[in-house]
Design a protein around this nucleic acid. Structure first.
Lengths: 185, 185
DNA sequence: GTCTATACGGTGATAGAC
DNA sequence: GTCTATCACCGTATAGAC
């Protein structure tokens, strides 16, 4: 992918994550990106919605990678989830609670209003769910549950400016996953 | 509370829930509310932020009520949570996935940008957490966990236009709560 | 309490030069 | 590929009449 396009995408991701889709202006994205001002509509001819959609998918790819790395810390799926959660909590603190990636914002804001963005977000969450599902021997419902729990906990962490919700969720999740994975055998 | 003010608040709640805080204009709120156009800055002299903050708190009061009613369906906390979750899932379908109340949107969008809105959202979530905590003999961490799970599941339901995530979460949650409540005895 | 008019900045987007 | 000028529109907020 072209450098300027990539810069725009990453700047958009940061801004969407912090303040949301509608609160972020195109000018702001260009300013923050350092990319040439004329290149925005060159690389994203369909405008802001396209930027949102591509940001969602790109960011979900990143997140899926981090999830896989985090889950690789232990062979035991339940413990792996706990460790991933603890790592996420630390990341949230380092990011000063501008956390969870742009996907949460894009997903919430587009769910009812924008067909296209919504479709992209659905696919994006699918990528993340897949990263969990691999670790859970293909148990998709469990993967989706874990994903939902982490998203919810991250939301509360943003609001409370404290990663406690995520740390606690990690703890509870370990139990849930252990239980569910044993049931299968 | 004055009728016009109440109308504005409820219209704002609906719009914030559907499309978010920044995507909703003051004009739109007035149009939707049916309240006199001149009354907006009369009842909300501090403007949009005040509307957001009061909407968050009012809506959280409503939600806390619904949570209490839902949880009253069973004496067993674990089963009560499952029933509340199933009821929520149905409500989401009826609302055509414009779900979860305005609080989720307000919280996500204001977490980093607006000090005042963020404070209101924090308090609002506190009200909801309290409604759970009562049922869990004061177990605040568990209450917060359940709250986080439901918020996360609602987010995924919005994205996927399917209440499945909430139904499944309700199922998993019953197990979690049962486990945690037994541990205490 | 409510209304209208208005200020002023910002929005996403397009056209055409280079 | 990039820039600048410009578009029409919408945002929030205020002033002052009634």
């Amino acid at each position: 992918m072209n450098l300027a396009k990539q810069q725009i995408l990453e700047a958009a991701a940061r801004l969407f994550e912090k303040q949301g889709y509608h609160a972020t202006g195109l000018n702001e994205i260009i300013r923050e990106s350092g990319a040439p001002k004329g290149s925005l509509y060159y690389y994203f001819p369909e405008g802001k919605e396209q930027i949102g959609a591509e940001t969602a998918l790109w960011s979900a790819g990143q997140m899926a990678g981090r999830i896989r790395t985090g889950l690789a810390q232990s062979d035991d799926p339940a413990e792996a989830v706990r460790l991933l959660g603890l790592g996420t909590a630390e990341a949230i603190e380092n990011a000063k609670f501008s956390a969870g990636g742009p996907l949460m914002m894009l997903a919430a804001e587009s769910a009812v209003s924008s067909e296209r963005l919504n479709a992209a977000c659905r696919e994006a969450y699918g990528l993340m769910q897949a990263a969990f599902s691999e670790k859970f021997s293909g148990n998709e419902p469990l993967a989706r549950f874990v994903l939902a729990v982490l998203e919810g906990a991250i939301l509360l962490s943003r609001v409370n400016h404290s990663a406690d919700a995520v740390r606690q969720a990690a703890q509870y999740l370990e139990t849930c996953v252990k239980l569910e994975m044993n049931k299968e055998k």
